[in-house]
């Protein structure tokens, strides 16, 4: 198959698949039907079925991935809209996010030592609490494996959304503000989606926490690599 044809099939196919899966998710709203998860599984199975390598898929894939940069930049807009909110709750936000980030990355550093993880795996797990577009880019600047990072980010997201409410209940975290902050800093965009269940304040906090954790995490991540 010619590269141009492959490129078109991959790009158009992925976009249509994603939109379809998103529609499905919007209708049934079950965590496991998350469009990224379902789209990924379908594409992986298709590639295996037609014996297409990842390199060949990426001929088209890299054109989709190109949009990661501007997407990260776009996060500035919701953050700007919430600036007065950030100032109002600045103490809780600063403490919640920085303690969350240190726990997220510090615990990975600790586990990496205990289980003697290989260096590239360790570098790929470090960004796992950060929103995927930033985590992927952070992973490549830390010389990790972006694809592995993307998977770890999803695991962090799903475990936080599915078991997180139970964990927080046990830890006696009741306030909507703290639940939002915690979900945003541990489970990024998936956590933000979950936080809508705890109300408007929780949702704002989760979204602020996701964005600020991503910014701070990009700066702090390299330090944890140095510590290892």
């Amino acid at each position: 198959m010619s590269d141009v044809l492959l490129l078109l099939i991959v790009v158009i196919g992925t976009v249509i698949l994603f939109l379809t899966m998103r529609y499905l998710y919007a209708r049934f709203s079950i965590a496991i039907l998350h469009p990224v998860l379902t789209s990924t599984v379908i594409i992986v199975l298709t590639l295996l079925l037609f014996n297409v390598s990842y390199e060949r898929f990426m001929i088209g894939g890299k054109w989709i991935e190109l949009f990661l940069g501007p997407s990260v930049v776009a996060l500035a807009y919701p953050l700007y809209n919430q600036r007065t909110f950030v100032m109002k709750y600045r103490n809780a936000i600063v403490l919640g996010i920085s303690s969350g980030l240190l726990t997220a990355m510090g615990s990975i550093l600790l586990f990496a030592k205990i289980f003697q993880l290989e260096e590239d795996i360790f570098h790929s797990i470090i960004p796992k609490s950060i929103t995927t577009p930033v985590a992927i880019q952070l992973s490549s600047s830390l010389e990790g494996i972006p694809s592995l990072t993307a998977v770890f980010v999803m695991i962090a997201g799903f475990s936080g959304v599915i078991l997180g409410p139970l964990v927080m209940k046990y830890a006696r975290i009741h306030s909507p503000l703290s639940k939002g902050l915690a979900l945003g800093s541990a489970s990024h965009a998936l956590g933000v989606a979950k936080s809508t269940e705890y109300g408007e304040l929780s949702l704002s906090m989760a979204s602020i926490s996701m964005t600020l954790s991503a910014i701070a995490g990009s700066a702090v991540g390299p330090l944890f690599i140095l510590l290892s």
Partner: peptide, 26 residues
């Protein structure tokens, strides 16, 4: 499986620490 376990435990620790500390401030 170990890696998945590590990521999950770390995520729960993050939820607890971040949530608890911000709740005290609140």
């Amino acid at each position: 499986a170990i890696l998945i376990g590590i990521v999950m435990v770390s995520t729960f620790m993050t939820l607890i620490v971040s949530g608890y500390s911000s709740q005290i401030v609140e």
